[in-house]
Design a protein around this nucleic acid. Structure first.
Length: 845
RNA sequence: GCGGGCGUGAUGGAAUGGUAGACAUAUCAGACUUAAAAUCUGAAGGGGAUUUCCCCGUGUGGGUUCGAGUCCCACCGCCCGCACCA
């Protein structure tokens, strides 16, 4: 009998699957389709355990669906544009293209040994001209449909690197790479008109029943719908009225000032003529943009001297202040401050000695506001003081509605709905991205490139030795004739945000080689993605952008109406974590050590004892990483796959431990050994056969349920238990053989190579991967006799064994005859006896 | 501050309102072995009685129920997301 040798087995069966072509997705009318997709990776060059977990989960689903008679689409590609490639080119030379395609080759080489059931014939990278050319075509269609436009926007500009920085690349107001003070610059940029779909994107969240509630909620908050009143304050000096937006118009009688943003047009006008205002505004803009800085920044205000009239009482004048806490981007950039019912306004008024007027008080404890604003839930009833629309006791919401009606009836304000969601700026002043396919002509303006000229390819002959965008200084690429009038013109040198690339790749997988972005029949057949799997970190941007793109692609005729919500079900998996091993150097600074350099809590090389820091996400800087490649070479892919699924529920983090990995390997070896023994045995049928078959059918039921409901860890626990049962069973060889073959089938989604080997060993026909998934025999799931626990007053005191269909009265009789019950009753009659058939008996005394 | 989630043995975790701790790790004991590894068998929530019996036990306190880890209320702790959003 041979030993379990993962390396021999795994390569052999991967070849067999390839040869049989069983993972190639095909359209056919006779089978239902199933599209399972894991979020595609960025080609960093190395796969990590998080990838293994993510793709294994998808693979379990894909293989299970294949075995249950579906046409499965399970593709893989590369999110291949982006800054790391350019940074590498700047840091170590070379070309982003070479770097990226080399990385893709390396990663594919690391991924293939995992034995994933991927249709590699559909693979693409977003930096393939065949892909980004179609993306350019989509862009042009969206431009024509009014879904893309240009406007000025303020960006973080790094004057040394001559590039735009994302917010997270600005650290303490300085560029993360150059360290230069970041400037705010206004540039003309391209935007997707995602805000035009705010309401639609919000409402459709309701239909996404198979998405985590958490993700839907995060998107809802991100879209940020609010309903309020918009109205204007007339200026005493007759200047342009100041329009404000408020979600609490009911507190208008508590207004004590009007506040405007430092970026408000009035503030800007004053800035130009008054040095004091200019100083103040500069002060406001100085503070950092980090959350911490914003949070701790004190309230600053500047009285402009402008006075406005209260809309309900023209005699009542309010001062206009510039305040640093008012955002120009939200609402109208101007508010009225009601200190009694808003903490920010209260802080502000206390600081600048402005009046505080209560507009309502609590019903039970009516006292005026001191240092804490009174902000009860909008559903709580409160007592109103001198309410203009005549309310006395009412909830905040009722008062808001009444106020909006009142203002609209009197004609000085209107109810308005606003969204926090802003348009998606897609311009990046970068080389390694999808070129925006337009030309700027002095005569014709912005001219779309002709579709027959697509793709607008990135030029290869670029250098990164100078700061700035190489496209911008590439004359032969940049200087082109205008597609419209033919006069000399310039190409757009901005490229697209990489989120664009990942916003439609799922659609492209349905027809990856087509000469159009999608093909109607393929999209109709394969869409939607039945199960999408990825990390929670993409809960907002990637998923929201994809939902927008799917709608845009429908509008422009590239996706069917059913695909506007492209992901039917979403699963967000947890991370793979590991302990951190730390020592300290002679200056007391922490030094981290790789897990493979540690033995018995000591550094192998030096014998120094390490401090163990609790598990955290695997990261290179903390060195708490385990390389999938070395795990595969030590134990095999099946062990890695088994372990990442086994120890924790898939939505939670799983801790990688050496002991756990080893245990997984031992278990798979044991399964192999048990199966080998069965294959060689010859024992006649035994009385124990039936018991084994019953357990087998229960296992089929439980594992199928587990695999269907992302209960992978629970399914694996059942497989462990069944393996124990099989190992100890006294059944004959025929029954054991059947049990072991079923075990192979049930394990196949998780450990496909080992399962094939066992399947063949036991004389299974063809590949286990395509063998029909076992179905539990209902008759075998019900035991003839059941053990019922007997409770006395809800506490378990005994148990009885009864026939499964014994009627309630008989069960009650049997229960009352149990010693423990007789003792407890002590001759008295029970108050009540509850019999739950097949479950439990509870005797109340 | 707002919103959401989670608290179960030494550890990861299991449990359609119905025998809490499945399964696994670590631990301990035994078998096999010259020995070790591997493998196999068994023990194990806490406490008490030592025969198989009793008490306590799912963060804390209350409630609903014949019965609560599970449902409800309050509190404590931890984690995540958002945030001067008017």
């Amino acid at each position: 009998m041979s030993r379990y040798s993962a390396s021999d087995i795994e390569a052999k069966w991967q070849d067999a699957w390839d040869e049989a072509g069983i993972f190639r997705a095909t359209r056919s009318a006779d089978k239902p389709k199933y599209y399972v997709l894991e979020m595609f990776p960025y080609p960093s060059g190395r796969i990590h355990m998080g990838h293994v977990r993510n793709y294994t989960m998808g693979d379990v689903i894909a293989r299970h669906k294949l075995a249950t008679g579906h046409n499965v689409l399970h593709p893989m590609g590369w999110d291949a544009f982006g800054m790391p490639a350019e940074n590498a080119a700047m840091a170590i030379g070379g070309h982003p293209k070479t770097w990226t395609y080399d990385n893709i080759a390396d990663m594919r080489g690391q991924m293939k040994p995992l034995g994933l059931s991927i249709d590699w014939s559909r693979e693409f990278a977003t930096c393939d001209p065949e892909y980004y050319g179609q993306q350019q075509a989509l862009f042009l269609d969206m431009l024509e449909a009014g879904l893309v436009y240009r406007k000025n926007a303020v960006v973080n500009w790094d004057p040394v690197d001559m590039t735009v920085l994302a917010n997270e690349q600005v650290i303490d107001g300085k560029g993360w790479r150059s360290g230069a003070e970041v400037e705010r610059r206004e540039l003309t940029q391209w935007f997707f008109n995602i805000s035009s779909m705010s309401e639609e994107l919000l409402e459709a969240l309701d239909g996404l029943d198979n998405w985590p509630a958490k993700v839907r909620l995060m998107q809802e908050n991100w879209i940020g719908k609010s309903r309020g009143l918009q109205f204007a304050f007339d200026r005493v000096d007759g200047g342009e009225p100041i329009t404000v937006y408020t979600t609490r118009p009911d507190t208008l009688m508590g207004a004590s000032f009007v506040g405007i943003s430092p970026d408000h047009p009035i503030a800007k006008a004053l800035e130009a003529e008054s040095p004091q205002v200019a100083d103040f505004v500069a002060e406001c803009r100085k503070g950092g943009t980090t959350e911490e800085a914003i949070e701790t920044a004190p309230k600053l205000g500047y009285d402009t001297g402008i006075r406005v009239k209260h809309p309900l009482n023209p005699e009542w004048e309010l001062p206009v202040w510039i305040a640093n806490f008012i955002l120009m981007d939200y609402g109208t950039g101007a508010i009225f401050g009601c200190p009694a019912h808003d903490q920010r306004d209260l802080d502000f008024c206390r600081k600048y000695d402005l009046p505080v007027v209560d507009t309502f008080v609590a019903l039970t404890d009516p006292k005026p506001v001191q240092d804490e604003a009174f902000v009860p839930p909008k559903t709580e009833k409160v007592k109103w003081i001198n309410h203009f629309a005549g309310l006395d006791e009412a909830t905040g919401q009722e008062a808001i509605d009444a106020t909006v009606d009142f203002a609209e009836a009197q004609g000085w304000g209107e109810g308005v709905t606003k969204y926090r969601l802003r348009d998606w700026g897609l311009s990046r002043q970068r080389y390694w991205g999808c070129p925006i396919p337009v030309v700027h002509c002095d005569t014709c303006g912005v001219v779309p490139e002709k579709k027959e000229n697509l793709p607008v390819r990135l030029p290869d002959d670029v250098t990164f030795d100078k700061p700035g965008n190489p496209l911008d200084r590439h004359p032969t690429w940049r200087d082109v004739p205008c597609p419209s009038c033919g006069k000399p013109a310039k190409r757009e040198t901005d490229t697209m945000d990489t989120f664009v690339d990942s916003s439609w790749y799922f659609a492209r997988f349905t027809a990856p080689r087509a000469e159009t972005p999608t093909v109607a029949e393929d999209a109709e057949y394969w869409m939607n993605v039945d199960q999408y799997i990825g990390g929670i970190e993409h809960a907002i941007l990637h998923l929201l952008y994809s939902r927008f793109f799917a709608r845009a692609m429908h509008i422009t005729g590239h996706l069917p109406a059913k695909a506007i919500e492209p992901f039917d079900a979403l699963f967000t998996q947890g991370m793979v974590t590991h302990e951190i091993y730390q020592t300290r150097d002679d200056k007391g600074r922490p030094v981290y050590h790789l897990p493979e350099d540690i033995e018995d809590g000591k550094v192998k090389a030096t014998g120094e004892a390490v401090e163990i820091i609790p598990s955290a996400k695997m990261s290179k800087s903390k060195k708490n990483v385990v390389d999938p490649v070395s795990i595969i070479s030590a134990f095999g892919a099946d062990t890695a796959r088994w372990f990442v699924l086994s120890d924790s529920p898939p939505e939670r983090d799983v801790e990688w431990t050496a002991a756990g990995a080893e245990a997984a390997f031992k278990h798979l070896s044991r399964v192999f050994r048990i199966a080998s023994e069965i294959a060689e045995a010859d024992v006649a049928p035994q009385a124990a056969d039936e018991e084994l078959m019953r357990e087998m059918n229960k296992t089929i039921r439980d594992v199928t349920l587990g695999v269907d409901s992302f209960g992978f860890n629970a399914a694996i626990a059942k497989l462990y238990a069944f393996t124990n049962t099989l190992a100890k069973s006294k059944a004959g060889t025929a029954a054991k053989r059947e049990a072991a073959k079923t075990l192979a089938q049930l394990m196949a989604p998780m450990t496909p190579h080992l399962s094939e080997e066992i399947w063949t060993l036991l004389g299974g026909e063809g590949l286990v991967a395509t063998a029909p998934w076992p179905v539990a025999d209902e008759a075998m799931l019900v035991d003839d006799t059941v053990t019922l626990p007997i409770q006395i007053n809800g506490k378990r005191r005994a148990e009885i064994s009864v026939a499964k269909d014994l009627d309630k009265a008989e069960v009650e009789k049997a229960a009352l005859a149990v010693d423990a019950v007789i003792r407890a009753l002590d001759g008295a009659a029970p108050k009540k006896v509850i019999v739950v058939p097949g479950r439990i008996v509870n005797v109340v005394i």
